[in-house]
Each structure stands twice: as C-alpha cells, then as structure tokens.
Design a binder for these strands. Structure first.
Lengths: 336, 336
DNA sequence: CTGTTAGCGCATTCAA
DNA sequence: TTGAATGCGCTAACAG
C-alpha cells in the first residue's frame, strides 16, 4: 500500500504537504500541488479511509436499514428502495444494507460507523432502533412510517389517502359490498390502508361488515386463503380491496379456482403497483406507491443533513396514485 | 465516545491490559479481565472500528457487487441475493451493496476497505472489475457466471442444463416447432440458455429455424413484443421457451391479447421460477434457479476464505430444477 | 506557503 | 501476568 509518506519522499516534501495537495487546501502552491498529484496518480495512490475516518471522526458510510431483510419485505420493495438510494449517493460513500433483525443489540450502530442512516421502516418494533440512532446523534431519515419524534426526517407515502381513493373508486362504480384483505399485523402500512378503507365506507354511508375484513400477511398465499374465506360467506362481497398486489394476485387465483371470473363475479383492487400488476389477467387496478421516489428524496435529504445543515425535523408526504386497469366492474353500466 | 483509555483509568490498569481483556487474550488474569469487562459494559463501550481496522489492516466489511443495481437486474434476483448473503454474515460484518456501474474507476476498491467481495456477475463487462479485485488480492467469490481465472471461488447455476431440460420437456410432450425468446444480449445467462435450447433441438434431430429465435431483454415488455413477432409468422411455433419468467409472462399476455389460449394454442415455458410463476393463469411451467442457495453458499465460502484458508480455486455448479405446471400442452395426448 | 509535532483509538512489540 | 513505548495512515495546530 502506498501512503502519503511514500509520495512525500518522492516529491521531496513533508507528508503534510502531500496531505494538503490531496485535499486541495488553499495553503499550497499550484506547481507543488500539481507535482504531488502527478506522483500520486502514478503511484496509484488511494487514501486509507480507516486512517482518514479515524482522525476526521467520520465514516463515509450510509446505513440503509430495513425492518427485516428476509421477513415480510417484498423483493420489489427491497429492490426499489436500494435502487433509489443507490442512485443518489456518490462513489465516496459506502452503502451498507442490513435488516434491524440481524442485530441482537445496537452497540455497533454509532456515529463512528455511520455518517447517516436511512431506515425503511415497516413496523413499530423499529422504534427502539430509532431511539438508539437518535440518541447517538446520527442523522436519520425514516421512510414509509410516520414517526412523531422531533429531530428526524420523515418521508411518507400517503397510504391512507391512497386506500381511500381506491375504495371510493369501487363505490363510484356502484359497489356496496366491499371487503378488505388486510396487511401483515403490526405493520403500520396495514393499519393505514385499513383506515382508508374504513373512511371511504363511512363517508359514503355504507355499512361495515366485520366478516368483510379478513386477515392477510402481504403474501400471495394469504391472499388466496383470505379470498376463499370471503367467497364462502353467505353473501360474498362484489368487490375486494387487497392491502397489496401480492395478495390481490393470490385472491384473483382463488376466484379463478372456483370457476368464477374477475371482474365479472368479483372486482379486485390491489395496492403497490408492482411490475406484474399490468400483466395479470385481467390487468390489476391498483394504487401506486412512490417507494423509489421516497428513497431518492430521503437519500438526498440525508446527504444534505450530513454535509451542510444539522438535523432538522421534516415530515413530507408523497402521494400515491390510483392506476385504473381492468379488474373492477362497473355495476352501474350493467344496470342500463 | 468512551475509549479503552477511559476504561483503563477506572480500572487502574494500562490501556494495554484493557485491550487484552476485550480481545480475551490468554495473558491476563481472570479476575482483572472480569473487572474490566464489567466496567466496559457499564460504560457502554463500543470499539472504534476505524482505529481497530487501521491497526489490524482489516475492514470488517463484505462487498456485494452486482453488474448493475438499476439496469437489467430483476428485483427478485437482487432481493434473493441480498437475502442469501445477509443471512450468512454475522453482526460483526458490514454488508456493502453496490453496482459495478456505479464506479467510473476502481481505485477505492482495495483490501483496506473490503475483507472480501462477492460478485453476482451478469455480464462480461464485469471482467475488468474481477481482474482488479484479484490483483488487489481481495478474497473473491463470483456467482452466476463462469470465470476461467484461477484463484477465486466460482459458484454457478447450471443454466444450460436447465434450459435443455425445459426444451426436452417440450419435445417429450410432442412439440416440434419450438421457439426461443432470448435474454438480454451480452448477458452470459442469455447465451447459456440459448445453448441449452439448441442442444436439445440438435440432440433430438429437430430442425433449427432462424425465425424461431427472437431477441428479448429480460423484461415483460420485450416478451410481449417477441411473442407477437412469433405469432405473426406464417407457421407460428406450438411452443415457446422464454429465457426468463418476466418475458414468459409478457409472452402469455401477447397470446391472450389475440384471443388465443395458453397452453391450448401455444405452450410456454419460463426460466427462474419467480414467485408469480405459480399464480399466473395458467400456472407457468418453468426452471427454478438456485439464486439464494448460491448466494448463501458463496457467502459461507468467502467467510471461510477470509478467516481460515487462503484463496483457493473452486468451481461449483448448483442444479436448476424443472417445475412442471400448466402452461405446456401434451400434443401426444391430443392425438389419441 | 511549508514543515514539525502531536494525536485520533487501538494492537503489539519488548521489558519488567 | 502487566505496563511502557511504538506505530498504523492520516489531519490539524503551530511555528516558521
């Protein structure tokens, strides 16, 4: 490994001067600087970040954390987030990706190791992690889940509104018996989407049936099971709002398995707009969530907080958008 | 930040002794060690890894690289790989994730920063990266693409055999006019699957039609386009082998869009066995690739290479498996 | 503008 | 078994 001392020797200067040249300090003459830089590049010098970080009390790394990498996080969600963050941070930063549940204690999460942390939060169990990070004074961006705490940047997708719009869309199409397949218990997103569903029903004066709200776990299998449960009812719903697309697809297949049709017999709406939603048969009407957008925005703000401003409280909602495709039937049209 | 010196003061010993206690050296009396450890935990001490790494010439980070994070890598592929690696490496390691195309030069990729590197390689353009890493003597595991070089660990999925089996399955069902929708140009996997397709045709004495081999890019849209191209032929194929599931699903929809049916009018086989393959209508027959398995095995071997043995040459193939579902028609059955 | 000196937090000689 | 001294590679304060 070539160090600044090696360069210093060849350039006949002190290693301090080399350091200055490398960090383009103003206190150096242009010619000497050029000479040093030339030697450095010829020697193929790369700084030792461990040494640099040690003295500068920095780490040059951004930590991207999920509630869990392997549990309940859909591949698309994971990928979109990483893509978003990755596209923003430059070469000079390390990007570390891990699940909170990979740690049994957070002692290794400190400001020596992380210049900043982005948390894609999916559950309240993340709170102890959040407190830990804040207490360590590490700049923090929390994505996807609302945090009341001050002193952090909080970027959210407006799931409740999105869910409400989806259900209102069903109502507008003449549906009255609208069921809900819920998301994974304990996930804030599950609650938000349920809230939106309820709000739409209530505001439109529709009855709320307990048996129309069935449990799900955000995976296809649970959507399949839940839909079967709904179809077994004496009075099955005419439309089902699924808390994510994976479950919507599972639900669709449960319908097909009984020889029924979507949307003729049951209308279905999903949530997320995963890539496949437009390739199901029929194409799935769903709510698009701005995951990548949020990740990008979050990364940008974190970088800014690290380099320029001290941590400030920010809360920002990015809107979802209803993507209307073919999985919802217009009951009004039928009556004509 | 509390350092070993702080502990030393409180324990009335030298910082050297503290260091020994923390790293359970044999040269320390059990009682003193216990006392020091007690104080350390009360002070909530965590080692400064920058300092530790600096003196030990280590980094405690594993680099997981993709050819590209944002380009041509499917979400499931990305997620499965990360999940696999993540599940193996312990808390004491950082998991660094980036795309090779995020770098315009590799000067920052050195053994100070990475204890070891796992590359999920998807294209020959990765070769310069591989050479760089090997030249820097960083323990390296290359996944997914065959590398001739000595001195690295190379874990592969046997795509060619998998593709051959898939096509042989079609042939066994009586198909003779079998088309291929190819993968992204330049990706080794695309070539391997094509080779398997060709091998199956040749070994079974079937004719090879140039117009039965159409280009694709591993995404659904290109599968859709390619299938349309095939259906426009004077003599359309009775079966199509798609180089991945995304394209297979796109292809299916192209068939549907013409009012035709799968598998009645066209049989389709995919590759990858992504989660949705079992929820398409009809359920997709496909080849399951051991992505997560390879990632897990790769991570284990890398960890071993880092801690125990010096880098040795290993090449290992994990088998794919044909998952038979409902998207292939048995032409022989029809004849009866 | 440049060099000398010191020190970041830690592991590792060498003596005791 | 313990401690004093040294250095990993780098930046920063200070003096010139």
């Amino acid at each position: 490994m070539v160090t600044i001392k090696d360069i210093a020797k060849l350039a006949n200067v002190s290693h301090t001067t080399v350091s200055r040249a490398l960090n383009n300090s103003p206190y150096i003459k242009e010619p000497t600087k050029r000479r040093i830089l030339e030697i450095a590049s010829q020697l193929n010098y790369t700084p030792n970040y461990n040494a640099k970080n040690l003295v500068m009390q920095k780490s040059h790394t951004i930590g991207l954390f999920f509630t869990s990498i392997s549990n309940g996080t859909s591949p698309i969600f994971l990928a979109d987030t990483i893509k978003g963050v990755n596209s923003v941070i430059g070469q000079e930063f390390n990007l570390f990706v891990r699940g909170i549940d990979d740690y049994d204690n957070f002692s290794s999460i400190n400001n020596m190791r992380f210049d900043g942390i982005i948390l894609m939060s999916q559950s309240e169990v993340d709170n102890t992690f959040i407190y830990h990070v804040m207490q360590k004074k590490i700049p923090l961006v929390v994505l996807n889940r609302e945090i009341q705490e001050q002193g952090l940047i909080n970027l959210l997708s407006n799931d409740e509104v999105g869910a409400r719009q989806a259900v209102e869309h069903l109502i507008a199409k003449g549906h009255k018996d609208i069921a809900l397949i819920e998301g994974k218990k304990g996930f804030k997103s599950a609650q938000a989407r349920k809230d939106g569903y309820m709000a739409a029903l209530i505001e439109n004066g529709l009855l709320i049936h307990k048996e129309y709200q069935v449990e799900g776990h955000y995976d296809m299998q649970s959507g399949y099971t839940a839909m079967n449960q709904l179809l077994d009812l004496n009075r099955p719903p005419t439309a089902v709002f699924c808390s994510n697309d994976d479950m919507a697809i599972g639900a669709m297949n449960a319908v097909f398995a009984r020889g029924l049709k979507v949307p003729d017999d049951v209308s279905i709406v999903g949530f997320d707009d995963i890539g496949f939603a437009q390739y199901t048969t029929p194409r799935l009407t769903t709510v698009k969530r701005p995951v990548e957008k949020i990740s990008i925005e979050g990364a940008k703000r974190l970088l800014f907080a690290i380099s320029k401003a001290p941590a400030q409280s920010v809360k920002l909602y990015e809107n979802t958008s209803l993507i209307i495709r073919d999985s919802v039937k217009d009951l009004k049209e039928e009556k004509r």
